[in-house]
Write a protein that binds this DNA or RNA. Structure first.
Length: 154
DNA sequence: GCCAACGTTGGC
DNA sequence: GCCAACGTTGGC
């Protein structure tokens, strides 16, 4: 299996790269979109690298890098009636939603704002840059990953 | 706060 | 199975 690269969205008020740094490892759950679910369940693998992207905030953009450190597992919040992620149609035998554990890899020296990414010709194909995109997990290419990484360096 | 784009729901 | 209505996302 070759390593894959991803971009995952979060609202920094919800979960930031600093939060991840503190906890070291975090279950990435609460994904309630079938396309994103399929990425987690079928394609994401241990060792994959992930850009952490801030959405729905003053300055959207990429804040750092995370690494996938677990196989996919059923997202516990789907069974939790008190959770806003509860799904009455999900059962233990037949879970609907999945999560993976991610660990802190690095925080960028410089935050990479969406506005700058839009100016980069080689990032044009990134799903996140396309109008109307709402997927919270998107595959990106190795080249895109390393280009954003470079933009985040001093 | 606005609004376009998208996913989901539900009536038929 | 279609599609209008609705709710949500997310950039600006």
């Amino acid at each position: 299996m070759t390593k894959n690269f991803w971009l995952m969205k979060s609202e920094p008020e919800d979960f930031s790269i600093q939060d991840l740094k503190e906890v070291e490892k975090e279950p990435w759950g609460g994904v309630r979109n079938y396309q994103a679910r399929n990425f987690i369940r079928d394609q994401i693998a241990i060792g994959d690298s992930v850009l952490l992207y801030y959405s729905s905030t003053k300055i959207p953009g990429v804040a750092g890098v995370m690494t996938v450190v677990s196989e996919p597992f059923p997202d516990p919040s789907q069974f939790d009636e008190s959770s806003s992620y509860f799904d009455s149609k999900a059962t233990q035998e037949n879970p609907r939603w999945y999560a993976v554990n991610v660990k802190f890899e690095k925080e960028f020296d410089r935050f990479v704002p969406l506005s700058l990414m839009k100016q980069e010709n080689c990032l044009k194909e990134m799903i996140i840059l396309k109008k109307g995109n709402r997927l919270s997990i998107t595959p990106i290419s190795k080249e895109e990953f390393y280009h954003v990484l470079k933009m985040g360096k001093k």
